[in-house]
């Protein structure tokens, strides 16, 4: 099947700053492709290169078999990042304005209903909440019923209920054959929506696949998080690899406390760990067990970039491992 979005070896630099260095991807018709990656990884530049709003220094882009600047623009829907539409217009006027730029637009009322801002359709854009504003912006990309939809962080600032509205909308569009490429920092969003996910780091896609395959390959082991102030050495007798997770790096600790993460514990063996805690009089305030997910993939692949950026590579900032560290899979948080 011919890819609807096809990019090969894209390179782009702004002065000495390299934004893209050999990024390639292909998205097929009706597929939802999520681009994830740290800030500055090149996601927005890649979307711009795909939509023809920036010219790559090298590489090729084909959208529906055409170059981005030659493709029929009525087939595209694009939501740029940090997009701010004309002010002093109501939500309805804004959607109608963008609809007016196309020959055969959808009814603006239908679009407003789709994105859930019917109640606020007569409110000026600047008086809408941040989430409502973003919904209107998403609506502006749907007025022409596009074949290919590019959404750069579409749900940023939208509340959970509104986010699910947008998710359902994207799922319906994809089911109807619309090809969607979105960028996001919300791993739950990528995991729910995407048929395939590409992780962009330092300007190139370092991992790509279905969310399940990425989790299998890069997600690492399941983890049992023990909320405790005990020192890692106290867990040396456990047969499972453990590591201390600092407060600021403990996204999996349910209360945000610092704790100990025990890996590779099958659910049936949790009792063994509890017995160990009690046998050694180790106080703890909570236990939580989780299978690896896309966030683990992201952290395993992108955390090094973040540490390099903050000059903390090599520091034991994320975890202090016990001697069982060797058992931790390569690429895990270290």
């Amino acid at each position: 099947m011919e890819a609807v979005v096809d990019a090969t070896d894209l390179e782009k630099a702004y002065g000495e700053t390299v934004a893209l260095s050999g990024a390639s991807l292909a998205v097929e018709r009706g597929e939802v492709f999520a681009l994830i990656g740290p800030n500055g990884a090149g996601k927005t530049t890649l979307v711009r290169a795909l939509t023809g709003t920036t010219t790559p220094d090298a590489g090729t882009v084909r959208i529906l078999g055409e170059s981005p600047t030659a493709v029929d623009r009525a087939t595209l829907g694009v939501l740029p990042q940090d997009f701010s539409p004309p002010d002093r217009l109501t939500a309805r006027e804004l959607v109608a304005y963008y609809a007016g730029l196309y020959d055969d637009p959808r009814d603006p009322d239908d679009v407003l209903a789709d994105v859930g801002v019917v109640d606020a359709e007569d409110t000026w854009y600047e008086n809408l909440s941040g989430g409502q504003q973003r919904r209107v912006c998403v609506g502006s990309t749907l007025v022409n019923d596009p074949d290919v939809l590019f959404l750069d962080e579409p749900t940023t600032g939208i509340d959970p209920a509104g986010r699910r509205t947008v998710w359902r909308l994207i799922e319906e569009l994809a089911a109807a054959g619309t090809t969607v490429l979105l960028t996001t920092h919300d791993m739950a969003e990528a995991e729910r929506l995407a048929d395939r996910v590409g992780l962009l780091a330092d300007g190139s896609i370092v991992a790509e696949g279905t969310p399940e395959s990425l989790v299998t390959e890069y997600g690492g082991a399941n983890r049992l998080t023990i909320e405790t102030e005990a020192e890692p050495d106290a867990f040396a007798g456990l047969e499972y690899p453990t590591e201390r997770v600092a407060r600021s790096h403990a996204p999996r600790a349910s209360s945000g406390q610092s704790g100990i993460v025990v890996r590779d514990v099958p659910p049936a063996e949790i009792g063994v760990v509890v017995d160990f805690l009690e046998a050694h009089d180790l106080e703890y305030t909570g236990l939580s067990w989780a299978e690896p997910d896309l966030e683990d993939v992201y952290l395993s692949l992108a955390d090094e970039t973040e540490l390099e950026r903050t000059n903390r590579l090599g520091e034991p900032a994320v975890a202090e491992s016990t001697p069982a560290e060797d058992a931790v899979q390569p690429g895990e948080t270290t």
Partner: peptide, 14 residues
């Protein structure tokens, strides 16, 4: 330009 409106308009028929 500051609101990325041209980026949006560049992908419409206008």
């Amino acid at each position: 330009r500051e609101g990325n409106r041209f980026e949006k308009l560049a992908t419409t028929p206008l």
